[in-house]
Design a binder for these strands. Structure first.
Lengths: 109, 109
DNA sequence: CGGTCATTTAACCCTCCCGTTAATTAACGG
DNA sequence: CCGTTAATTAACGGGAGGGTTAAATGACCG
Protein backbone atom coordinates (compact mmCIF):
# COMPACT_ATOMS: atom_id res chain seq x y z
CA UNK A 1 0.00 0.00 0.00
CA UNK A 2 2.92 2.25 -0.70
CA UNK A 3 1.60 4.00 -3.79
CA UNK A 4 0.32 7.52 -3.64
CA UNK A 5 -3.25 6.86 -4.77
CA UNK A 6 -3.73 4.17 -2.16
CA UNK A 7 -2.57 6.51 0.57
CA UNK A 8 -5.01 9.15 -0.63
CA UNK A 9 -8.00 6.82 -0.83
CA UNK A 10 -7.13 5.28 2.52
CA UNK A 11 -7.04 8.74 4.07
CA UNK A 12 -10.49 9.44 2.67
CA UNK A 13 -11.89 6.14 3.90
CA UNK A 14 -12.54 7.50 7.38
CA UNK A 15 -15.60 9.63 8.18
CA UNK A 16 -13.79 11.62 10.86
CA UNK A 17 -11.07 12.57 8.43
CA UNK A 18 -13.56 13.53 5.74
CA UNK A 19 -15.37 15.67 8.29
CA UNK A 20 -12.09 17.35 9.15
CA UNK A 21 -11.53 18.14 5.48
CA UNK A 22 -15.05 19.55 5.25
CA UNK A 23 -14.32 21.77 8.22
CA UNK A 24 -11.05 22.93 6.70
CA UNK A 25 -12.86 23.90 3.52
CA UNK A 26 -14.20 26.80 5.57
CA UNK A 27 -10.73 27.91 6.56
CA UNK A 28 -7.68 27.00 8.61
CA UNK A 29 -8.14 25.63 12.11
CA UNK A 30 -6.10 24.46 15.08
CA UNK A 31 -6.09 20.93 16.45
CA UNK A 32 -8.41 21.70 19.34
CA UNK A 33 -10.78 23.55 17.06
CA UNK A 34 -10.85 20.58 14.73
CA UNK A 35 -11.36 18.18 17.61
CA UNK A 36 -14.27 20.07 19.09
CA UNK A 37 -17.15 18.47 17.10
CA UNK A 38 -15.93 14.94 17.76
CA UNK A 39 -16.29 12.67 20.72
CA UNK A 40 -12.78 11.30 20.51
CA UNK A 41 -9.57 12.18 22.29
CA UNK A 42 -7.12 14.80 21.13
CA UNK A 43 -4.34 12.29 20.40
CA UNK A 44 -6.75 10.50 18.07
CA UNK A 45 -7.38 13.72 16.18
CA UNK A 46 -3.66 14.40 16.11
CA UNK A 47 -3.11 11.08 14.38
CA UNK A 48 -5.91 11.68 11.88
CA UNK A 49 -4.18 14.92 10.98
CA UNK A 50 -0.94 13.08 10.49
CA UNK A 51 -2.67 10.69 8.09
CA UNK A 52 -4.16 13.59 6.15
CA UNK A 53 -0.83 15.37 6.05
CA UNK A 54 0.84 12.20 4.88
CA UNK A 55 -1.63 11.99 2.02
CA UNK A 56 -0.89 15.59 1.14
CA UNK A 57 -4.48 16.56 1.87
CA UNK A 58 -3.50 19.16 4.44
CA UNK A 59 -0.47 21.27 5.21
CA UNK A 60 0.39 22.53 8.64
CA UNK A 61 1.97 25.64 10.04
CA UNK A 62 2.99 26.44 13.57
CA UNK A 63 2.60 29.80 15.21
CA UNK A 64 3.43 29.85 18.88
CA UNK A 65 1.89 26.79 20.50
CA UNK A 66 -0.85 26.46 17.92
CA UNK A 67 -0.56 24.34 14.82
CA UNK A 68 -3.13 25.18 12.25
CA UNK A 69 -4.07 22.95 9.36
CA UNK A 70 -4.88 24.05 5.85
CA UNK A 71 -6.75 22.14 3.19
CA UNK A 72 -4.67 21.04 0.20
CA UNK A 73 -6.95 19.66 -2.49
CA UNK A 74 -4.29 18.58 -4.97
CA UNK A 75 -4.57 14.88 -4.06
CA UNK A 76 -8.32 15.07 -4.60
CA UNK A 77 -7.64 16.17 -8.13
CA UNK A 78 -5.40 13.13 -8.58
CA UNK A 79 -8.08 10.85 -7.19
CA UNK A 80 -10.79 12.21 -9.46
CA UNK A 81 -8.38 12.01 -12.37
CA UNK A 82 -8.09 8.30 -11.72
CA UNK A 83 -11.87 7.90 -11.52
CA UNK A 84 -12.31 9.90 -14.66
CA UNK A 85 -11.26 6.85 -16.64
CA UNK A 86 -14.52 5.24 -15.57
CA UNK A 87 -16.80 8.15 -16.20
CA UNK A 88 -18.16 6.59 -19.35
CA UNK A 89 -19.55 3.74 -17.26
CA UNK A 90 -21.61 6.09 -15.11
CA UNK A 91 -23.88 7.08 -17.92
CA UNK A 92 -26.58 4.47 -18.36
CA UNK A 93 -27.12 5.57 -21.94
CA UNK A 94 -23.50 5.13 -22.77
CA UNK A 95 -23.45 1.77 -21.04
CA UNK A 96 -26.35 0.56 -23.12
CA UNK A 97 -24.78 1.89 -26.29
CA UNK A 98 -21.47 0.34 -25.38
CA UNK A 99 -23.07 -3.03 -24.74
CA UNK A 100 -24.89 -2.77 -28.03
CA UNK A 101 -21.71 -1.99 -29.95
CA UNK A 102 -19.91 -4.85 -28.27
CA UNK A 103 -22.68 -7.24 -29.23
CA UNK A 104 -22.48 -6.08 -32.82
CA UNK A 105 -18.75 -6.55 -32.86
CA UNK A 106 -19.07 -10.09 -31.54
CA UNK A 107 -21.64 -10.98 -34.14
CA UNK A 108 -19.57 -9.70 -37.06
CA UNK A 109 -16.71 -12.25 -37.19
CA UNK B 1 -16.68 2.76 9.13
CA UNK B 2 -20.22 1.74 8.32
CA UNK B 3 -21.13 4.54 5.95
CA UNK B 4 -21.28 3.99 2.23
CA UNK B 5 -18.61 6.46 1.19
CA UNK B 6 -16.08 4.98 3.60
CA UNK B 7 -16.69 1.52 2.20
CA UNK B 8 -16.18 2.82 -1.33
CA UNK B 9 -12.98 4.69 -0.57
CA UNK B 10 -11.63 1.76 1.44
CA UNK B 11 -12.30 -0.54 -1.50
CA UNK B 12 -10.34 1.81 -3.76
CA UNK B 13 -7.43 2.04 -1.34
CA UNK B 14 -5.88 -1.16 -2.61
CA UNK B 15 -3.81 -1.30 -5.81
CA UNK B 16 -4.85 -4.85 -6.59
CA UNK B 17 -8.52 -3.92 -6.41
CA UNK B 18 -8.00 -0.84 -8.58
CA UNK B 19 -6.17 -3.03 -11.11
CA UNK B 20 -9.12 -5.43 -11.09
CA UNK B 21 -11.48 -2.55 -11.82
CA UNK B 22 -9.21 -1.43 -14.65
CA UNK B 23 -9.31 -4.92 -16.10
CA UNK B 24 -13.10 -5.04 -15.80
CA UNK B 25 -13.37 -1.79 -17.71
CA UNK B 26 -12.44 -3.87 -20.74
CA UNK B 27 -15.25 -6.32 -20.12
CA UNK B 28 -16.52 -9.03 -17.81
CA UNK B 29 -14.09 -11.64 -16.53
CA UNK B 30 -14.05 -14.74 -14.37
CA UNK B 31 -12.16 -15.05 -11.10
CA UNK B 32 -9.26 -17.00 -12.59
CA UNK B 33 -9.00 -14.56 -15.47
CA UNK B 34 -8.86 -11.69 -13.03
CA UNK B 35 -6.30 -13.48 -10.87
CA UNK B 36 -3.97 -14.25 -13.75
CA UNK B 37 -1.92 -11.00 -13.77
CA UNK B 38 -1.30 -11.11 -10.03
CA UNK B 39 1.14 -13.05 -7.95
CA UNK B 40 -1.32 -13.77 -5.18
CA UNK B 41 -3.48 -16.75 -4.41
CA UNK B 42 -6.99 -17.30 -5.72
CA UNK B 43 -8.63 -17.01 -2.30
CA UNK B 44 -7.03 -13.59 -1.94
CA UNK B 45 -8.54 -12.49 -5.25
CA UNK B 46 -11.85 -13.97 -4.21
CA UNK B 47 -11.84 -11.78 -1.14
CA UNK B 48 -10.87 -8.69 -3.09
CA UNK B 49 -13.88 -9.34 -5.29
CA UNK B 50 -16.08 -9.62 -2.24
CA UNK B 51 -14.83 -6.24 -1.04
CA UNK B 52 -15.53 -4.69 -4.43
CA UNK B 53 -18.97 -6.27 -4.57
CA UNK B 54 -19.68 -5.04 -1.06
CA UNK B 55 -18.84 -1.52 -2.18
CA UNK B 56 -21.17 -1.92 -5.14
CA UNK B 57 -18.26 -1.52 -7.54
CA UNK B 58 -18.89 -4.83 -9.25
CA UNK B 59 -21.81 -7.16 -9.74
CA UNK B 60 -21.47 -10.87 -10.24
CA UNK B 61 -23.28 -13.50 -12.22
CA UNK B 62 -22.85 -17.25 -12.28
CA UNK B 63 -23.06 -19.43 -15.33
CA UNK B 64 -22.16 -23.05 -14.72
CA UNK B 65 -19.05 -23.14 -12.51
CA UNK B 66 -17.83 -19.75 -13.64
CA UNK B 67 -18.62 -16.54 -11.84
CA UNK B 68 -17.97 -13.51 -13.91
CA UNK B 69 -17.65 -10.00 -12.54
CA UNK B 70 -18.94 -6.84 -14.12
CA UNK B 71 -17.87 -3.28 -13.44
CA UNK B 72 -20.48 -1.08 -11.76
CA UNK B 73 -19.28 2.50 -11.72
CA UNK B 74 -22.14 4.03 -9.75
CA UNK B 75 -20.14 4.26 -6.52
CA UNK B 76 -17.37 6.06 -8.39
CA UNK B 77 -19.89 8.69 -9.32
CA UNK B 78 -20.81 9.05 -5.65
CA UNK B 79 -17.16 9.36 -4.68
CA UNK B 80 -16.43 12.03 -7.27
CA UNK B 81 -19.61 13.82 -6.26
CA UNK B 82 -18.20 14.08 -2.76
CA UNK B 83 -14.86 15.36 -4.04
CA UNK B 84 -16.61 17.80 -6.29
CA UNK B 85 -17.25 19.96 -3.24
CA UNK B 86 -13.53 20.64 -3.13
CA UNK B 87 -12.98 21.32 -6.80
CA UNK B 88 -12.72 25.03 -6.21
CA UNK B 89 -9.62 24.40 -4.12
CA UNK B 90 -7.83 22.69 -6.96
CA UNK B 91 -7.63 25.79 -9.03
CA UNK B 92 -4.68 27.86 -7.96
CA UNK B 93 -6.26 30.96 -9.43
CA UNK B 94 -9.38 30.48 -7.41
CA UNK B 95 -7.35 29.85 -4.30
CA UNK B 96 -5.49 33.10 -4.75
CA UNK B 97 -8.69 34.98 -5.43
CA UNK B 98 -10.34 33.37 -2.45
CA UNK B 99 -7.47 34.33 -0.16
CA UNK B 100 -7.61 37.84 -1.52
CA UNK B 101 -11.33 38.15 -0.87
CA UNK B 102 -10.90 36.79 2.63
CA UNK B 103 -8.21 39.33 3.35
CA UNK B 104 -10.47 42.12 2.16
CA UNK B 105 -13.31 40.90 4.31
CA UNK B 106 -11.08 40.82 7.37
CA UNK B 107 -9.87 44.34 6.76
CA UNK B 108 -13.36 45.77 6.41
CA UNK B 109 -14.77 45.45 9.94
C1' DC C 1 11.23 30.27 37.30
C1' DG C 2 6.78 28.05 37.55
C1' DG C 3 2.40 27.30 35.72
C1' DT C 4 -0.56 26.54 32.06
C1' DC C 5 -2.20 25.69 27.49
C1' DA C 6 -1.69 23.17 22.86
C1' DT C 7 -0.10 19.32 20.87
C1' DT C 8 2.45 15.17 20.26
C1' DT C 9 4.59 10.74 21.65
C1' DA C 10 4.55 6.40 24.12
C1' DA C 11 2.52 2.31 25.41
C1' DC C 12 -1.05 -0.48 25.19
C1' DC C 13 -5.85 -2.68 23.33
C1' DC C 14 -8.56 -4.65 20.05
C1' DT C 15 -10.25 -5.17 15.58
C1' DC C 16 -9.88 -5.44 10.72
C1' DC C 17 -7.17 -6.32 6.55
C1' DC C 18 -4.28 -9.00 3.53
C1' DG C 19 -1.99 -12.87 2.72
C1' DT C 20 -1.23 -17.94 3.16
C1' DT C 21 -2.50 -23.25 2.70
C1' DA C 22 -5.90 -26.83 3.27
C1' DA C 23 -10.48 -28.24 2.95
C1' DT C 24 -15.18 -27.64 0.94
C1' DT C 25 -18.77 -26.64 -2.30
C1' DA C 26 -20.66 -26.66 -6.98
C1' DA C 27 -21.10 -27.96 -11.66
C1' DC C 28 -19.56 -29.95 -15.77
C1' DG C 29 -18.20 -34.07 -18.66
C1' DG C 30 -16.61 -38.80 -19.69
C1' DC D 1 -20.44 -42.05 -10.40
C1' DC D 2 -15.87 -40.21 -10.54
C1' DG D 3 -12.56 -36.95 -11.74
C1' DT D 4 -11.65 -32.29 -12.95
C1' DT D 5 -12.18 -27.46 -12.90
C1' DA D 6 -13.86 -23.06 -10.65
C1' DA D 7 -14.49 -20.74 -6.73
C1' DT D 8 -15.32 -20.14 -1.88
C1' DT D 9 -14.83 -21.05 3.11
C1' DA D 10 -12.00 -22.20 7.15
C1' DA D 11 -8.22 -21.48 10.02
C1' DC D 12 -4.31 -19.17 10.93
C1' DG D 13 -0.49 -15.29 11.26
C1' DG D 14 1.46 -10.74 10.76
C1' DG D 15 0.83 -6.09 10.60
C1' DA D 16 -1.72 -1.81 10.22
C1' DG D 17 -5.48 1.23 11.93
C1' DG D 18 -8.16 3.54 15.32
C1' DG D 19 -9.06 4.17 19.96
C1' DT D 20 -7.56 4.94 24.85
C1' DT D 21 -4.77 7.13 29.01
C1' DA D 22 -0.47 8.87 30.77
C1' DA D 23 3.66 11.23 30.00
C1' DA D 24 6.57 14.44 27.33
C1' DT D 25 7.41 18.55 24.57
C1' DG D 26 7.20 23.47 23.50
C1' DA D 27 5.79 28.11 23.95
C1' DC D 28 3.42 31.60 26.15
C1' DC D 29 2.72 34.45 30.51
C1' DG D 30 2.64 36.18 35.26
Amino acid sequence: MTDRLSVIFAALADPTRRAILARLAEGEATVTELAEPFDISLPAISRHLKVLENAGLISRSRSAQWRSSRLEAGPLREATAWMERYRRFWDENFARLDAHLKRLQEEKP
